[in-house]
Design a binder for these strands. Structure first.
Lengths: 192, 192
DNA sequence: CGTCCGGTTGCACTGAGTGCAACGTGATGG
DNA sequence: CCATCACGTTGCACTCAGTGCAACCGGACG
């Protein structure tokens, strides 16, 4: 592997220290009871540095790890759409859910979305997944953007429903399994 | 009809004046370039009164008119689930989309969601629809909350996809029609 | 060794959102 | 008709989120 330059390393360290601190503090005290200063102090950096890494307080909770963005890109470029859009979306989503770094934070995040305002922010942070899939799907079905959009949105709904009915007391794998069942149930609507 | 007490009337007037002013100003200048003071001034009330009606600036753009919340409740209590969950959800969604007050604001809102942050907020504001439908669907399928949740989430995805692919230059009716086609295409996944 | 680059920091500023006390007017009851 | 209450509105002061700017400092590079 390429040795990471010290500059880049420090950057990643600050990012992860801030996200860990934010999730940990908010999970313990609740969103409103944690200030940006608290998070910065817990991460050992200044308040200004916090905003160098995250544009908002919620971003610190939900922004995807760059490694996960990269993972999704790899999965999409390697995806095989020959058996139809739906099986491909199913495969990419399930592989992504199972392997991404953010999976470790999923139980905490699941508890946070009891606040509907935070739920919306989480969706917006995870929107990069649907955007990337949308671009990919549109490329697969050049002549039919409506079908592509419908499939991607529906796939997102499957994952969202699995997330909503999943209890954070269960292991994250149960969440992934529930998503898989959801994909199977909707398959009849998307014939190859 | 019951004559509305003057107190209640003033309340509604302020609410609608603020929402109109907010949508109008933000549609013209963009979200960041409009302050709460601007909106309050344009509506002819004080800054403090703004926050008496809306908890946040985005709420002024996307909070549902109480009349629409009431409309949805009426549609759900009158809904007939005997032919299956999916046709019932289809009927309620399409009737709601066609008749609700907010429809007039839909083109402006469609343009606003170019900003993904605002898109997330709109979804959260429209979440009351899915929450109400979720409660209703859970009542229809007491033994199977997973199917109920999946159907409601999927229905939301159909509407979301129609909204995303709809151009605000077309009439709002085209958006409703696109949603109807989406419901039809997903019907095979939800047999009676 | 000198120069440049880039992450970090402090400072000052705008604007969102809140708690509180006060005012004015419609609703209510004697 | 008047006293009282209820409630939408308002001003004020305060905390905190988010931003622009200039300065600092240590690693990268010739």
């Amino acid at each position: 592997m390429h040795p990471v330059p010290a500059r880049e390393q420090q950057r990643r360290d600050s990012w992860r220290a801030l996200q860990s601190a934010a999730v940990e503090l908010v999970g313990r005290r609740g969103f409103a009871a944690v200030t940006v200063d608290d998070v910065a102090a817990a991460a050992g950096v200044s308040r200004r540095t916090f905003f160098n890494h995250f544009p908002t307080k919620v971003a610190a909770l939900f922004d995807p790890d760059p490694a996960d963005v990269e993972l999704l890109d790899r999965l999409l470029t390697g995806a095989d759409g020959s058996a139809g859009l739906w099986p491909a979306l199913r495969g990419v989503w399930l592989a992504f859910l199972a392997d991404h770094r953010g999976l470790a934070l999923t139980p905490v995040r699941r508890r946070l979305v009891a606040d509907p305002e935070l739920a919306a922010h989480m969706r917006s942070a995870h929107l990069f997944v649907e955007v990337a899939m949308d671009r990919w799907a549109a490329g697969q079905l050049p002549g039919d953007p409506v079908t592509a959009s419908l499939a991607v949105h529906t796939a997102g709904a499957v994952v969202g429903s699995a997330f909503a009915t999943w209890s954070p007391d269960e292991p994250p794998a149960a969440f992934v399994a529930a998503a898989a069942r959801g994909f199977d149930r909707l398959a009849p609507a998307f014939p190859g």
